[in-house]
Each structure stands twice: as C-alpha cells, then as structure tokens.
Design a protein around this nucleic acid. Sequence first.
DNA 1: TTATTTTCATAGTTTTAAACTATTATAGGA
DNA 2: TCCTATAATAGTTTAAAACTATGAAAATAA
Lengths: 298, 298
Amino acid sequence: MTLDQLRYFKAVCQHDNVSLAAEALNISQPSVSNAIANLEKEFGSALFTRQRKRLVLTKEGTLLLEMTEQLLSQADNINRIMREMGSKKQILRLGVPPMIGSLALPVLFTQHFNRYPQLQVHIAEDSNSGLKRLLADNQIDMAFLPHIHSFGSEWCSVPVTELQNVCCVSKTHRLAGRSKICLADLKDEPLVLFKNSFFQTQRILEGFSHISCTPNVLLDTAQLSTVQNVVASNAVVGFMFEFLLKSTPSLVGIPLDPPMSTLVSLVWKKDRHVSESMENLIQFIKETPNGICTASQG
Amino acid sequence: MTLDQLRYFKAVCQHDNVSLAAEALNISQPSVSNAIANLEKEFGSALFTRQRKRLVLTKEGTLLLEMTEQLLSQADNINRIMREMGSKKQILRLGVPPMIGSLALPVLFTQHFNRYPQLQVHIAEDSNSGLKRLLADNQIDMAFLPHIHSFGSEWCSVPVTELQNVCCVSKTHRLAGRSKICLADLKDEPLVLFKNSFFQTQRILEGFSHISCTPNVLLDTAQLSTVQNVVASNAVVGFMFEFLLKSTPSLVGIPLDPPMSTLVSLVWKKDRHVSESMENLIQFIKETPNGICTASQG
DNA sequence: TTATTTTCATAGTTTTAAACTATTATAGGA
DNA sequence: TCCTATAATAGTTTAAAACTATGAAAATAA
C-alpha cells in the first residue's frame, strides 16, 4: 500500500471510471488499473464489482475510501506544513465572516500583519458554518467565529471581542429617540435582515418566535450596504452590530432589551500544529484584549 | 514523500543512528541515507543536524516526527483492517483488566465467542491505564474498563455491569458477623490491598485520606490468590469485588458503608472503524444487560 | 598527536516496480 | 450484428529504489 495507490483509488472512486481518473491524474489508464489491482491483491478482497455496467464500490472498497480520505488529507497536511517551513515564507490562511471582517481586518493589517513582511496572509471570507467546515478540512488555519455553537474539546479558541447587536433606524425615524427597544415593540414594523445563514439573524428570529411573533420581514440580503441604504431611506428597521454604525452617521442604533451580544473568538483545531504565524496572531489577540474593539471606535 | 521514506525517517529517529536503523529495517545503510536526503530535498529543510557528534533532530525534524507517527499509525491501521477483511478470518483484540477478566471471560467464551468459529480473539490483560493507552494506540480494538475516569467525547462505551467493592475477612474473623462496615472501623486493622495501579485500591486509599486516616497496609500485591490466602489466614482484612468471593467459601464479604461500586463498561475509540466482530460483541453486551453478572452468580 | 573505529555520504551498478504503448476482451447501445 | 466505450493484459521502457564499494568526517583510544 502506497500513498500513490491510495490517491489513484480515490480518483477512481470520484470519477466512477478508471479512464477518466487516469486522465485527471495525468497518467495512463493501465497504470491506474494496475494500482487498483495491486491494492486488491494486497488486501485480499475486491474493491469494486466490475460485473455490471459500472464500477461499484464493494463493502471493503467503501471502508477503504473512507479511511483513505482521512489518510491522504493528513499526508497532504504534512506536505504543506513541511514545505512551508522549508520555504521560509510563512503562510497564514485565516477565515473571517463577512461582518466581522470589516471590523477585524483593518486592525490586523495595520497593527499586526505589517510587522511580518515575510508573512503571506490568505483571507477566506465565508459563512460561519462554511468556515467551520474549512477549518475541519484543514483548508484554513484559523478563523474568527462567534462563540455560539459551543465548541467541543477538539477546538481551541481565544476570545477576541464582544459585539453588541442593536436595532438600527434612520435618524428621522419615529423610533429614533428610543433609548432601548424590545422585539415585541417591532412586531409590526417592516424589517430588513441579513440572510438566514447569518447566525445573528437566526438569533433575532428565535427571539421573535420566543414571544410568539411572526416578524414582518420585508427583505433579507447578504449585503451590509443594502441594509444601511434601505434603513436610511426611513422605511424600515434593521439590525446590525453597533460598531458598523460608526461609519454611517445617518443611522442610529437602539440597544435591544434584553441586550443581545456576540462573543467573537479566534478558533483553531486542537489536533493541528500551531505554526509560528498562528502563534503570533494568538499572542497579538491575547495582548490586546480590547484592541480590535477600541480600534473600531477610533 | 512516501510512506516508506517516513518509515525510514522514524526508524532513524528511534535509533538516533542511520546504520542501526538500516539494520533494523533490513535494508542497506545508503538506502536509508538516500530516503532522508530525498525528504530533506523535497521539504527544503534539514531534518537533522549532522555537524556535531550525533544526529540531532532540527525543529523541522521534530515536527515531522510527530506528524509522521500519527500518519504511519493510521496507515498501519488501514493495512490491518483491510487485510483482516480480506482474509475472512475475523480478529478481535480485547483488553481486560485482571480482576474483571476472571468474571467476564468465561461468560464471553461460553456464551458469545463460541458462536463465531472463524473469530480469533486476542486478549490483552493489563492495568486500566495500560489498556487505555493500548486503545489510544489502536493496539487493541476494545476494552472492559471501569467507568471512573470519565471518558471524553472521543470514546464510545456501553455499560456492562456494576460490581460491588466489599471488605472481606475470614469466616472466623472477629468482624465476620458484621452486616456492614465503614473505613473508619478499619483504621487500625492490618490490611492487604491490591497494588496502587488498581484503581479500586486508589479509591479505598482516597476514602481513608478523606476521613484523615492512614491505613495500616500490611501488604500490597497484584495477585488475587495472595489476597485470598492471606485473608483466609485470619490475620488481615482485604478488599475485593463481591463476585470474587463466590469461589472462596472460607471468606465472607462485608458491604462497605457507604457502599462502593464500580460500573464496568465496554469501551472503544469513536474515530475507529467498528468491525463486524466488535459490533457483535456490543450487541451481545446490550442484549444481556445482566448476563455477565448473573452468570458469575450461577 | 596519530591510529583506529564508527558512522554517514557519495559513486556506480543492479534490480525492482511503476510507467508507458499496443492490444484484447467484454458489455452496452445503435 | 456491429460499433463504441471501458477495463484488463502483454510486453517494453523508464525511473527510482535497492545494493556494493568506497571515501570523508568525527569520535575514541593509544
């Protein structure tokens, strides 16, 4: 059993076809056939049934595929990590949810990453669930994530900042003078929300369902500027993080009652090797507990 | 990077010596040197410093060794599992602590394993901590373990039976008539205990320290028969599982006050593939919740 | 210091195995 | 029935991994 044999096997499974797999691997078809045959000889059982029209995985093949994917992923990781160390240039693959990116990234780039000229930063912007999957697959090293889905023992994290979720309206809106507001007050207001995939939206909808209200959702969007512009037009009520209002003077935020806040953490997998650049970022976050917060307010 | 290269690298690390590693691997020394050189070329960094007296792992080498051991262990598992499936003969590697073995094994062999003639059972008898390590290293498939060290989320288990820990004395002993006894009553008695590595012993000692007593331990042994014989000689007081007294009519057990019991579970790693023979054993345990208990009493 | 031993790297050769090309066999579809 | 698609087989080439032999560097001993 060699890693190459397993790679070929995986490719055949993905394509359900030896010839296509060979093409994708840039090798000849008999080489792939050979590799599969050698695996079958070594293990003593068929991995595919070839009787019928198509290749179908046997019980043994299914099990091997599952274990193979794990092994190859780990092998690729070793390769990547070792090459990175060898090439001296550090790479940090960081996941950031769209909303938090606008807060955290400017601070990180001006106060942290610029201190490491040899550091190459790759930012992956994705939803929270998407980032979690990327982390699990080792496609990113760390991510900023709301500490909501309680992370199990296989995750490490350091707290970054606590963000306030506020209701926001135009300065000329009827509710603009309120010092705080509860969801029940908003049950008949037309609302603009971020899409369901944003977990803040989920919490707001849960809040409504908790008081047995069906909110009047006029629009759900993924664009912050859409929310800002529609709210500024005075027609509707929106929700966003308080810090996002700093840059839009035409809007005012009204704290929710009860308050709703989000603890954002920097998260990574426990079983992963913590590279130098990861360690540096963790240190920066730990040393500036309010750094990202205060910077946003400056 | 191939699995063989990593295997050679690991061997060199283990022997701190290329020549010895080559000998252990049954290949020539230049082959090993070559493999290491190829890894270093591929990764772009030295894995050892050879300048000085001996081979010393570099930072990169240390990291690679750590990741390599994981990868090779997983690769060996794949190999073993697939070969096992291919050879049709099933193998179950079961870990059993010495005390529990005398209870569980006869039941398992007469009521369960005998139903699977093609099944080959390997029993590993070891301490609880030893078994846990064997499980972690995938050197055994499952083990019977007291459910004391609370198992984290990376472990699966099914409860097997609850065993009573009792104080035991000879039939003619002064305390033989007691219906129950507390540790404080025993603070001046000469005791015979199993070695500290037995977790029941640890619990008894904890119990004594809890009431600020230093027990008078005359003898600690790993042999059940030693405990039985010394206790039977009427000189000392011992502790054991109640079921172990069934076969020794010259001894009587006195329940502890408060009672002390041990929940024994069948445990395995969550990330492991559950083979047919493992599944069969789990089913047997589930279907006969008191089977092992009652059998011991018959 | 100098000789001796240990140990790893290098050079050159052999062997093995993995890749290739060409062809055959088998099944589905026209 | 023929044609096409696809995998297996045969035979050859190539590449890499093993070997033997030797050289270089450092540690050990005289």
